[in-house]
Design a protein around this nucleic acid. Structure first.
Lengths: 233, 233
DNA sequence: CGGAGAGTTGACTGTGTTCAAGCACCGTGG
DNA sequence: CCACGGTGCTTGAACACAGTCAACTCTCCG
């Protein structure tokens, strides 16, 4: 992972931004940079945003892994999505001022912060940016539909395989993973809470993946042994 | 339900549009009407759109109930969301030309059709429309997050209750339901496919709701017996 | 060395599934 | 008016996938 010392980087040259939220020209990115109010650093396992709080800033992940989640009575937790470098945390803040979910860091995380009001003006004033914000929104809705289909109609084995494959592919698309090994900071508890399973059962499923010689996940390291078999799920 | 003979209605006076997609001024609505290429009528239980086909038109539901769904190998089906009058079927068509899901009518349905390209231009040219399209997109993402939480971390009883309550409230917000009784065209099979259950088990859950004197669903008619208890789920 | 957190194991339980048969309702046609 | 067939809902018994609980291990880290 990139070290914090690498910041500040100008948005126009930001290697993250281009992989997710906006892939446009340098001039627009330079204008965007004028809206940036700073950046912040969180250690691993810290709450970045708590559901229902007023959020004065738009956040974009510069480095590290995080996740969106909801807490329910009885200690139940549902992880809604995993956030990777380049992902905006809170586009809905363009139209509302409180988010219906919480956000927590998985690794140590660096976020870039933007003023909420002027960010909204920026998006409204640049049709191309607005279009890409729309595209991002639709893509994440399509991802939510896939996850919904996983929870509703696929087995635990399929769910775990597909979640891991999705994350590998997203990391590769950003140029943050290449070989058959990568850092994978989701623990069994996180995978379970993302897929509607228990941590114990997730452990059994992972063991089966290992004995099937498809993948091995151990202490934050993921190794793909048979990618073709994984893609077939 | 409004009869087909009520069409054509000008968008500026459309009682549906204001309840969901766009709540703006008359002039903008009049411009929108110029983009409308017509309307179409489907009987109940017909496929309106099949996943992966090229979609040359944007559709907005004028009257009737429909749903978005995905089909999986082995005859499995996941219903992604229920579409009510006023809901746009396919906003993602603003940025892509094929949808990753299918759409089917539940009752007889009337849809208004708009040219895809000029609709995109219309949205891009009207910041307020773009903003409301964004708001709609974020709202449906929040709804998807809720449903995900249902499937992942709530019991069958809670899921069924919350789905029914959500639909009642959406209908009321549109002024299409008022009393303690309403038409409810989702069958047990549909509820099951929306919530990741089997139709048989859904039947047992509905029976329990009836014996708990909370609600009764029978032959397309829904009656709410104890709304407070339903809201508590 | 000791403690905390994450992961593992095994036995048991339970929610929800599966399969097959039967029933009720409803539109159709004689 | 009634027989017919289809669809959707109901019932019951057996089963399975995944959950629960409690004890144990491992590794990291102070």
């Amino acid at each position: 992972m990139m070290l914090m010392s690498a910041l500040p980087v100008s948005c126009a040259q930001c290697p993250r931004l281009k992989t997710a939220f906006y892939r446009g020209d340098h001039q627009t990115l330079a204008e965007m940079e004028a809206l940036r109010t700073g950046h912040r650093h969180y250690p691993a396992k810290r709450t970045i945003y708590r559901e229902g709080e007023i959020a004065p800033e738009m956040l974009i992940i510069f480095d590290g892994w995080a996740f969106r989640y909801k807490l329910l009575p009885g200690g139940r937790r549902q992880i809604l999505s995993v956030l990777l470098p380049g992902d905006p945390i809170s586009l809905p803040l363009l139209t509302i001022d409180r988010l219906p979910f919480s956000v927590q860091s998985l690794t140590s995380v660096t976020v870039c912060t933007f003023g909420r009001g002027c960010f909204a003006d920026f998006v409204a004033g640049h049709p191309l940016v607005a279009r890409q914000a729309g595209a991002w929104c639709f893509a994440s809705q399509a991802a939510a539909d896939e996850r919904l289909t996983d929870l509703g109609r696929r087995s635990a084995y399929e769910r775990v395989g597909r979640l891991i494959l999705e994350l590998i592919m997203r990391m590769e698309a950003k140029g943050l993973a290449t070989g058959s090994q990568m850092l994978f900071p989701l623990g069994q508890t996180h995978i379970a809470d993302a897929l509607g399973l228990t941590a114990i059962h997730t452990g059994r499923v992972l063991r089966r993946f290992r004995s099937d010689r498809i993948l091995s996940l151990h202490r934050g390291r993921l190794e793909i042994l048979n990618r073709a078999a994984l893609c077939k799920l």
